[in-house]
Design a protein around this nucleic acid. Sequence first.
DNA 1: TTGCCCCTGGGTATAAATACCTAGGCTATA
DNA 2: TATAGCCTAGGTATTTATACCCAGGGGCAA
Lengths: 223, 223
Amino acid sequence: MASPFKILLADDHVMFRRGVRSLIQGMDNVEVVGEAGDGFELLRLLKAIHPHLVIMDISMPNLRGLEATREIKILDPGVKVLILSMHKEREYLYHALTAGAEGYLLKEDADGELISAIETLRQGGTFISPLLSAQMADIFVDKFQAGSEPRTGPGEPLTIREREIVKLIAEGKSSKEMGQLLFISSRTVQHHRANIMRKLNLKKTADLVKYAIQKGYVMASVF
Amino acid sequence: MASPFKILLADDHVMFRRGVRSLIQGMDNVEVVGEAGDGFELLRLLKAIHPHLVIMDISMPNLRGLEATREIKILDPGVKVLILSMHKEREYLYHALTAGAEGYLLKEDADGELISAIETLRQGGTFISPLLSAQMADIFVDKFQAGSEPRTGPGEPLTIREREIVKLIAEGKSSKEMGQLLFISSRTVQHHRANIMRKLNLKKTADLVKYAIQKGYVMASVF
DNA sequence: TTGCCCCTGGGTATAAATACCTAGGCTATA
DNA sequence: TATAGCCTAGGTATTTATACCCAGGGGCAA
């Protein structure tokens, strides 16, 4: 393999990043290309570096890990995400997978399983911490890989800007509001909107919302 | 208990209905109050009888079982639904639970487990066929009971008509289209729409779509 | 360089949604 | 009987969305 597997680390604890980095250094053809201390920095680096994988603390500051995961999947759906978490509760796992993460690793497992997790994700798989029973993983993975497979695949017909618009529409924003948020004219937003509708062959805002949910751009919850 | 637990059977096979009925006859304070051979008949009987539980074949004609389940949850969210299915695949279980069913029983299990299933649902629980591992159930039940508990509870502020409107909006229908479908004026639809928005304290169609998905009135899929 | 796609912005027009107001018939219940 | 809630329907006005048209600048690749 000529091109190494590029990894971006996102965790607010320097020591933890150092530990992960040292673990990864023992792997072949895998390289840590950047580190971020919070979500904003992560997104900035993401645009600049375009890594293959982001390893992220779920409780990272400024855009918590799951929000950042959603953003990553909108900005660059091909980037895989491995969530590091201290939470054993299944709700966290569920939300991580629905946010689009391909991996969920407990920090207490990280020492022994991180390399396996990275390898699994590198090969297109999904990795769930062994402490969270394998059955759980199967279900969610089956469901959410099947339901959102084109998220990463070549079937993604939308541009980055268009995915941003889709997310905002699904959040209930009007074209005018989106224009103000994105610092562009509402007319431009309308233009994107029309292009999205045409590309996806949709007719109604309702369809767009369902598309966004299916893609994991937003959560179905109204709360 | 003075009032018996009223059950409506929906299955296109008469012999199967007969078998279920005979099984139930051995139970205390449980009564089969009607039988339907397809989905349309089921909904008609539902409005007339208002049973406590519907036991339904997943592959029933004219409105398949899952569609009928969604309709039931819109028309009368307090009615519990037990799906009878020959499908072991987890996708069917998943879709049944997201459609709002409280129970999923494999036909090959029905003989030995039907009474347990009915009792469980009667007491407000969720029953999944033992052949489908218990872990699966736990996950989904936790998720979807937590996420849609008010579906059956007193927190449901919408009327039947309003829930119908919500479902149609989430399906992408315009007020004019809904008026034609429901044989009422589009102005009436707009009035319902405004009432729904006010009751739920929502502002945008996008929020309504997410509400409908959360409630299980529609699926998030755009396909 | 040339072409293609993305992002940007506007004009115009129609359709739809949203926000207020009004009110009558119906049913269930206090 | 009377009160309340639900479903029905219309008036009027404003805001959005949708559907067409137009075009320029920038990046990227054949």
